[in-house]
Lab assay of single mutants.
Amino acid sequence: GKMTGIVKWFNADKGFGFITPDDGSKDVFVHFSAIQNDGYKSSDEGQKVSFTIESGAKGPAAGNVTSL
């Protein structure tokens, strides 16, 4: 299901970062391709987002990331 969290950091040059879930669980990796914004796929530190957890090649990753 959908979770909410805060972007801990995001490196636009490398195209990835981490989200800290609101439920206190482990930080989740986020790749720019998962960000659902139109246009520039980046996110700012401290941005509140909703997301799903997908199982990626390197473990859990955020999917369907949407700014709230």
Rank of each mutant, 00 (worst) to 15 (best):
17 G>N: 01
11 N>R: 06
11 N>A: 06
32 F>R: 13
50 S>K: 06
1 G>I: 13
35 I>D: 04
47 Q>M: 13
68 L>A: 08
31 H>R: 05
30 V>R: 00
53 I>S: 03
8 K>R: 11
57 A>K: 12
1 G>Q: 13
55 S>V: 14
58 K>G: 09
51 F>P: 00
38 D>K: 11
56 G>A: 08
61 A>S: 12
47 Q>R: 11
44 D>W: 15
45 E>I: 15
33 S>T: 12
4 T>N: 05
6 I>V: 13
33 S>E: 07
18 F>R: 00
59 G>E: 02
13 D>E: 14
3 M>I: 10
10 F>V: 04
66 T>V: 13
27 D>K: 02
7 V>H: 01
45 E>Q: 14
43 S>W: 15
26 K>E: 12
60 P>S: 07
47 Q>Y: 11
10 F>A: 02
34 A>E: 09
21 P>E: 01
44 D>C: 15
32 F>M: 12
1 G>A: 12
61 A>Y: 15
33 S>D: 07
37 N>R: 09
27 D>Q: 05
8 K>A: 06
15 G>I: 05
39 G>M: 11
19 I>R: 00
21 P>F: 05
40 Y>M: 11
35 I>F: 15
45 E>D: 08
48 K>A: 10
15 G>D: 01
8 K>M: 04
29 F>Y: 09
22 D>G: 04
23 D>A: 04
35 I>N: 03
36 Q>A: 11
10 F>K: 00
22 D>A: 06
57 A>C: 12
15 G>S: 03
45 E>A: 15
43 S>N: 09
22 D>H: 05
62 A>W: 02
4 T>K: 06
34 A>F: 05
49 V>Q: 00
36 Q>F: 11
59 G>L: 04
46 G>T: 07
53 I>E: 02
46 G>P: 09
24 G>T: 02
28 V>F: 04
2 K>I: 12
45 E>M: 14
62 A>P: 03
61 A>I: 15
18 F>M: 07
35 I>S: 03
19 I>E: 00
21 P>A: 03
57 A>L: 13
52 T>Y: 09
38 D>R: 09
65 V>K: 02
49 V>T: 00
36 Q>S: 11
9 W>M: 02
24 G>E: 02
27 D>T: 03
46 G>Y: 09
47 Q>P: 05
41 K>H: 13
20 T>A: 09
22 D>C: 14
35 I>T: 05
6 I>H: 08
33 S>M: 07
18 F>N: 01
26 K>A: 14
67 S>L: 15
45 E>N: 13
2 K>T: 11
19 I>P: 01
49 V>K: 00
65 V>I: 06
17 G>R: 00
43 S>Y: 15
57 A>G: 09
66 T>S: 09
43 S>P: 15
56 G>R: 08
3 M>D: 01
6 I>S: 08
52 T>V: 11
25 S>A: 06
44 D>K: 15
35 I>Q: 03
49 V>P: 02
25 S>K: 05
6 I>C: 12
48 K>R: 14
16 F>Q: 00
68 L>Y: 07
62 A>I: 03
26 K>N: 10
50 S>A: 10
55 S>E: 13
14 K>Q: 08
36 Q>G: 08
11 N>I: 02
23 D>G: 06
64 N>M: 09
67 S>A: 13
62 A>F: 02
37 N>V: 12
5 G>H: 02
42 S>E: 08
21 P>C: 06
62 A>H: 02
36 Q>H: 10
50 S>P: 00
27 D>A: 06
39 G>Q: 10
33 S>C: 10
61 A>C: 14
53 I>Y: 10
67 S>I: 15
58 K>V: 07
28 V>K: 00
12 A>V: 12
30 V>W: 08
36 Q>P: 07
55 S>A: 13
16 F>I: 06
16 F>G: 00
6 I>M: 07
9 W>N: 02
43 S>C: 15
24 G>P: 01
7 V>M: 12
6 I>Y: 10
55 S>I: 15
45 E>P: 15
59 G>R: 07
31 H>Y: 08
12 A>E: 09
38 D>F: 13
17 G>P: 00
37 N>M: 14
65 V>T: 01
14 K>S: 07
11 N>Q: 04
47 Q>T: 13
56 G>V: 05
47 Q>V: 12
67 S>K: 14
62 A>S: 02
3 M>Y: 10
28 V>Y: 04
27 D>L: 06
23 D>C: 08
52 T>I: 11
25 S>G: 14
37 N>S: 13
49 V>M: 03
31 H>P: 04
9 W>I: 03
24 G>K: 04
67 S>P: 14
31 H>G: 04
54 E>C: 12
46 G>L: 10
31 H>Q: 04
29 F>Q: 01
54 E>I: 15
10 F>S: 00
52 T>A: 04
65 V>D: 02
20 T>G: 03
37 N>I: 13
42 S>W: 15
35 I>H: 03
60 P>N: 08
21 P>G: 01
56 G>N: 10
48 K>L: 10
27 D>W: 05
18 F>I: 05
5 G>Q: 00
60 P>Y: 09
51 F>N: 01
44 D>Q: 15
58 K>T: 08
51 F>Q: 02
6 I>D: 02
58 K>C: 14
49 V>G: 02
66 T>D: 04
51 F>V: 03
60 P>F: 10
17 G>W: 03
45 E>G: 14
43 S>G: 11
62 A>N: 02
62 A>C: 03
12 A>C: 14
29 F>V: 01
26 K>H: 09
35 I>E: 03
32 F>V: 13
12 A>D: 08
5 G>R: 00
68 L>N: 07
2 K>G: 06
11 N>E: 05
31 H>C: 10
21 P>L: 05
12 A>H: 14
17 G>Q: 00
24 G>M: 05
48 K>F: 08
18 F>P: 00
58 K>L: 10
15 G>V: 03
30 V>G: 01
62 A>M: 02
20 T>P: 01
15 G>W: 03
51 F>C: 04
36 Q>I: 14
54 E>P: 00
14 K>E: 05
26 K>S: 11
67 S>E: 09
49 V>D: 01
28 V>L: 10
35 I>K: 01
64 N>L: 08
39 G>E: 09
18 F>G: 01
43 S>R: 09
58 K>S: 09
38 D>L: 14
53 I>R: 05
9 W>Q: 02
62 A>T: 01
8 K>N: 05
19 I>V: 03
12 A>G: 08
49 V>A: 00
27 D>E: 07
65 V>Y: 00
28 V>M: 04
40 Y>A: 10
5 G>S: 00
39 G>I: 11
63 G>E: 08
38 D>N: 12
15 G>Q: 03
28 V>W: 03
2 K>F: 12
8 K>C: 09
66 T>N: 07
21 P>Q: 02
15 G>Y: 03
13 D>I: 13
51 F>S: 01
43 S>D: 07
18 F>Y: 08
2 K>L: 12
36 Q>Y: 10
53 I>L: 10
3 M>N: 05
41 K>Q: 10
34 A>L: 02
49 V>C: 05
54 E>L: 13
36 Q>D: 11
20 T>N: 03
32 F>D: 06
47 Q>I: 11
59 G>D: 03
13 D>V: 14
31 H>L: 06
7 V>K: 00
41 K>F: 15
18 F>Q: 01
12 A>F: 12
23 D>P: 02
9 W>E: 03
47 Q>G: 08
42 S>C: 14
5 G>T: 01
39 G>K: 10
35 I>G: 04
43 S>K: 10
36 Q>C: 14
45 E>R: 15
49 V>E: 01
57 A>V: 13
34 A>S: 10
40 Y>V: 11
22 D>W: 04
9 W>C: 10
48 K>I: 08
8 K>G: 04
16 F>A: 00
18 F>E: 01
44 D>R: 15
45 E>Y: 14
61 A>N: 09
65 V>W: 00
22 D>R: 00
23 D>K: 05
27 D>H: 04
43 S>A: 15
57 A>P: 14
55 S>H: 14
17 G>C: 05
53 I>Q: 03
63 G>A: 15
65 V>G: 01
33 S>F: 05
51 F>K: 02
66 T>R: 12
38 D>A: 13
3 M>W: 07
53 I>T: 04
20 T>M: 10
42 S>M: 13
22 D>L: 07
68 L>W: 04
52 T>K: 02
68 L>G: 05
20 T>D: 02
59 G>K: 05
24 G>Y: 03
4 T>Y: 06
21 P>N: 04
35 I>V: 07
16 F>T: 01
41 K>V: 12
1 G>L: 11
54 E>W: 09
60 P>R: 14
43 S>M: 15
28 V>P: 00
51 F>A: 02
6 I>N: 05
26 K>P: 14
12 A>K: 15
65 V>C: 03
32 F>H: 11
47 Q>S: 12
14 K>V: 08
19 I>C: 02
52 T>Q: 07
38 D>Y: 14
61 A>H: 14
56 G>K: 07
51 F>W: 01
21 P>I: 04
36 Q>V: 13
61 A>F: 15
7 V>I: 15
50 S>L: 08
28 V>Q: 00
17 G>K: 00
44 D>M: 15
10 F>L: 04
48 K>Y: 10
38 D>G: 13
50 S>V: 08
22 D>S: 08
8 K>D: 04
55 S>T: 13
4 T>M: 07
53 I>C: 08
64 N>S: 08
55 S>P: 12
50 S>Q: 08
37 N>L: 12
40 Y>D: 09
1 G>Y: 08
10 F>R: 00
66 T>Q: 12
37 N>W: 14
47 Q>D: 11
39 G>T: 09
2 K>R: 13
32 F>G: 08
67 S>D: 07
42 S>Q: 09
5 G>W: 03
35 I>Y: 13
20 T>I: 12
41 K>D: 11
